[in-house]
């Protein structure tokens, strides 16, 4: 199967998926934090493995990655990627603890609370994304439990590519960035990377009537 010659039409469909999914997720995050969250225009990338890692800052970039396997009529991986200080900010907001720091020194209980807060945010965001996508496509989609990793981007993101890599050396990625701009704080941004398995594209296009 040569999935890597996407027509403009097909690309637009995939962008629309990013729009609908991340849009809904941004709304959820906005309600969770009580703050305005903006969504950027999604991009659809056909990238080799190394390019995927570059999308999130390069192989050594420290990131917090939340990875979900998606099951149902469409299968694939959803990765939510934020930088360390952004994850820190999310935990601070959610636990009402401005002193929280995510570092090597973060102790056991504090780290556990942080991991669980981040996992919960991930559950909510991925759930929102997939619900919107289910409604749009009429297809059944379910996320796995979250897999949370804090490390170099290369080390974490390759796990999201394992399924795809059994079939090809390229992944089609629907990348949507959400941002929050607030005074007294740098821009908070995070990326949703939806990486459907290669077999899922035909199903998706067929279902949506553009084959």
């Amino acid at each position: 199967m040569d999935a890597f010659q996407l027509t403009t039409f097909q690309k637009d469909i995939l962008k629309e998926i990013g729009n609908i999914g991340a849009g809904n997720a941004a709304t959820s995050l906005s309600m969770l934090l009580g703050q305005k969250i903006d969504m950027m225009v999604p991009s659809v990338e056909i990238a080799d493995f190394n390019e995927v890692i570059e999308l999130v800052g390069g192989p050594e970039q420290p990131i917090v990655g939340l990875m979900f396997q998606i099951e149902g009529e469409i299968t694939g991986v959803m990765a939510i990627v934020v930088e360390i200080d952004e994850a820190e900010y999310l935990v601070q907001k959610l636990t009402h603890n401005d002193q929280f720091r995510l570092s090597e020194q973060t102790n056991g209980t504090e780290l556990e609370i942080a991991m669980s807060a981040l996992s919960e945010i991930g559950n909510i965001l991925t759930g929102s994304y997939l619900t919107a996508l289910s409604d749009f496509t009429g297809m059944n989609l379910q996320p796995s439990v979250p897999h949370l990793g804090i490390d170099m981007a290369g080390a974490i993101m390759t796990l999201g590519l394992l399924e795809v890599s059994q079939v090809t050396d390229y992944a089609i990625i629907i990348d949507t960035e959400i941002r929050q701009e607030e005074e007294n704080h740098e821009n908070i941004k995070g990326n949703f990377l939806f990486i459907p398995d290669p077999e899922s594209f035909q199903k998706l296009f067929a279902k949506l009537g553009w084959n």
Partner: peptide, 23 residues
């Protein structure tokens, strides 16, 4: 050396790969 890549090197040069996880 990138992911799913293989290269060779001779001194005085060095060779590296970044961000190995399960790889």
């Amino acid at each position: 050396v990138g992911i799913a890549d293989t290269k060779t090197v001779q001194h005085p040069n060095t060779i590296r790969t970044l961000g190995l996880g399960s790889c």
